[in-house]
Every structure is written in C-alpha cells, then in structure tokens.
Design a protein around this nucleic acid. Sequence first.
DNA 1: CCGAGTTTAATGCGTGTGCAACTATTGTAA
DNA 2: TTACAATAGTTGCACACGCATTAAACTCGG
Lengths: 149, 149
Amino acid sequence: MRPSRLTLDDYLPYLVNRVGVALALEFGKDALARYGLSIEMWRVLVVLSANGGQRQVDLGGLTSIDASTLSRMVTRLARLGFVVRRRSTANNREVEVALTGKGRAALRRLIPIARRYEQLAAAGIAPAELAAVKRALCAMYRNLTPAAD
Amino acid sequence: MRPSRLTLDDYLPYLVNRVGVALALEFGKDALARYGLSIEMWRVLVVLSANGGQRQVDLGGLTSIDASTLSRMVTRLARLGFVVRRRSTANNREVEVALTGKGRAALRRLIPIARRYEQLAAAGIAPAELAAVKRALCAMYRNLTPAAD
DNA sequence: CCGAGTTTAATGCGTGTGCAACTATTGTAA
DNA sequence: TTACAATAGTTGCACACGCATTAAACTCGG
C-alpha cells in the first residue's frame, strides 16, 4: 500500500475513534441524560467506582481529562450530589474526590445499561476474540503512554 | 462478576476511549499543530482523501461530527486553504467539499507520520491479531449504527 | 529553619461545540 | 400548479474545553 494513502477501514485511529463516538452517543443521549450527566462525567464516576476515592490529578490520568476541565467538572458533579470533594487531611493542597451514596446509587442503575451497550457493540464477536481485542487495546495504551501508569 | 461493578481493564468503552484520546493527543500536538490543524480537522481531511469530494452531510456521517460544527470547520479549513467549498451545480442546496492542492500536499506529509503513530500503538501485536482487532472494531461500529452506512 | 523548586488545584480568557431555530432548495402529492 | 413535507446548510446562544497563569501547600538541600 502506498504510504501516501489511507484506507479508512484499515486505519486504526479512525476505527477506534468511530467506535468510541458511537458508544458515547448511544449511551450518553439515552441513559446519562436522564441523570444530567455527560459522558465525561460518567467516565469520572466509573473510575471512582472502580478504583475508589482519588485525587483530582489521578482522576485526570485515569480518564484522560485535563486538570482544569476536571476541576470544573467535579464542581458540577458535587453540585449534582454525586461526589464530595474534601481536602485531604494529610496533605492540605490535595483534594480527595469520592462518590456519595447518591453517586453509588446512580452507578448501580447505570452500569447494567452500560454493559448492555457494551454487549450490543460486541454482538457476534466470539468471547475469546473479544478478550484478545481488550488485551490489544490495553497494550496499545501502554505503548502510547510510556512514562505514565 | 457482579453486574454492579465495572473493572476498567475489562470495560470496552473505557479501553476504546483511552486509546483514542492517547492517539489523538500524540499526533495532534506534535504534527498537526504545525499545520494549524485540530484532530477533528485532520479526520475531515482524511475522509476527503480516502473517499473524494463529499457533501457536508456525508462528511458528518463519516466523521461523526455534528453538521453545524462541520459547517464552521469547513469554513476554517477553506480559510486555511486546505479545501474548497462549492455549491453543487445539480442540486443547489448542497455543498461539495473537496481537497485543494495544498490540502493534498499536507496529507502527503502527514499520512506517513500518522502511520508511524499507528505502528507505535500497535507495536508488539502480531499482524494477524491486529487485523482481527480492526475487523472487530468495524463490526462494532456496524452493530452500533444499524440504520447508517 | 529558610528559600527555591515542585506539586496540586483553581481561575481568566479566547475559542470550539452542540442544540435549536432559521433560511433556502428540493421532493411529493393532491 | 400549489401547498406541504423533507433535506442541506448556516447561525444564535449558552456552555464546556484547553492553555496559560495564579494561588496555595508541600519538599528538600543547605
């Protein structure tokens, strides 16, 4: 293949972006909108659910969201009552962000829906192959972020 | 696994988004910035390069970019000299967007760099497995967009 | 213990985004 | 032909984003 042409169906970033946008759109407009949440907010909540309370800077690393954007987003999430932001007792410049009961309740309802969209996307793909895809995506992320994580 | 918990490394939308953002960031700040291009603009140019001149509405479908956003983006791309926007002669409400010579020249230089980032991401993944990943991503997109395409 | 340097978070600012509303053109059916 | 609906594109508006800067707290060598 000539290096000066790109076939879309063979160009990985295009394929990844397309699936990512499609997944976000479906789930975002359907389920998340009912909670006043954006997809980025959802990602923050998922990371908090999976990894527990986090400093904002770590949340940023895990969600690939800019620190300034995240600061304002956490303010909105707190105003909605899904998280609390409390100054760390040990280190007074750090802020710990943690889920509230309301946040956990919303996640309990949203996670099954998220899984259904995941299954919808993966329909017709053999479990072993799906696992291989996930492993490959993890490897790609590690390749692209040598220093981090 | 309990349905009310999500393991990040097993949650497909998270993995896809993470790789997508990492790819866009690397390429966007490094190579695209020198041309005054954003990643979204790059995606538009790539689609034009792969599929030829397009109506704006079709560009939107292929790039997952909102029509109004695209309208303004094409204005900027035209001002930068990368594309031309001309009213279709057959159908006077349609607009055809096409690459200029300058646009094609920029693509000739950028595509090899894009491929290098793609290879960087896919390093250590066997060609057959990479092909399987691409097929899976295409299948996922089809699953998520039943009507379109 | 002091002060330079680092880390973490918040904010000012210009800009891009998506939704909704609007204009213009084309398609369709009585 | 005329009226109504559908399609393509643009624009107004409010808002979220990212960068650069600032503020505050911590670290550590001298």
